[in-house]
Design a protein around this nucleic acid. Structure first.
Length: 256
DNA sequence: ATGGTTGCTTAGCAA
């Protein structure tokens, strides 16, 4: 089973690249983030024609997450399920072929100390509580997405440049480790223990041509799935060429 | 270097 995660930075702006990439990469499941569209404007037709069911949690202009799957999704759930009034569409979950799949778009946080940063920290704490309440670490589950956090400095090409930022601050790194502490393994790191592999390059700083990348996109799996993960790679080529997203897809293979 | 680019929506926000 091939499971992918990709922050597409607008599913409509990226549609041609997305369809071509699905044909090339052949994922069984693809978690998407930053759809930047309402469900009624989601491009169901070309993605269905490409062979995928589409679970879509949309929002106008900002955020939005989806789960594309070859097999029919079941038990679809949107949001963090804690009764907090929260209009931001950042989490979708579904059962696909006996594997629970979650597509998450963690808040960026803007600036350390801002209201948006507090929301980011709180959102990660709510995510941990959601896992505790609704799922079990013994079940096959993969939490995929753009976490807007580089776990440590091996995930940052230029650590000095990003030290203390919303992507690297110790408070948000701690909050992400609390999520992993529920019972999740970073399957890409299992295959690349020395780091130095990145998934996001800033448009503004011309990060890609300068080699200034960070790993912000992850597949986190429970033990039964992590134990059968045979490969995990960033598809760096997708950051090249015309009209790329600022994120590259990450794909992991599970022998299930 | 408080720079730079992209997308949505159409001047300003978010990333």
């Amino acid at each position: 089973m091939r499971i992918a995660t990709w922050n597409v930075n607008s599913v409509r702006a990226r549609l041609d690249r997305l369809v071509a990439w699905l044909a090339k990469a052949q994922p069984d499941v693809a978690c998407l983030q930053e759809l930047k569209t309402e469900e009624k404007k989601f491009p169901y037709e070309p993605l269905t024609e490409a062979g995928y069911h589409c679970v879509v949690h949309g929002q106008k202009t900002y955020n939005g997450v989806a789960i594309l799957s070859r097999a029919e999704p079941r038990d679809v759930v949107f949001g963090l399920g804690d009764g907090v009034a929260d209009p931001q569409a950042r989490l979708a979950a579904a059962d696909v072929g006996g594997v629970t799949v979650l597509s998450a778009y963690v808040p960026n946080g803007s600036e350390v100390g801002s209201d948006k940063y507090d929301y980011k920290l709180a959102w990660l704490a709510r995510l941990r509580q959601h896992l505790e309440r609704r799922f079990e670490p013994a079940q096959p589950l993969v939490l995929c997405g753009d976490f807007n956090v580089a776990r440590d400095d091996t995930d940052v090409a230029r650590p000095d440049e990003w030290a203390g930022s919303v992507l690297c601050h110790e408070t948000v790194r701690d909050a992400l480790e609390q999520v992993l502490g529920w019972g999740l393994a970073d399957v890409h790191r299992q295959h690349h223990p020395d780091g130095g592999v990145y998934s996001w390059w800033d448009y503004r700083r011309l990060g890609f041509p300068k080699g200034n990348g960070l790993r912000l996109d992850y597949l986190f799996a429970t033990a039964p799935l992590a134990a059968c993960c045979t490969a995990a790679e960033v598809d760096r080529d997708e950051r090249k060429g015309s009209k790329p997203s600022d994120h590259a897809p990450v794909v992991a293979v599970f022998d299930v």
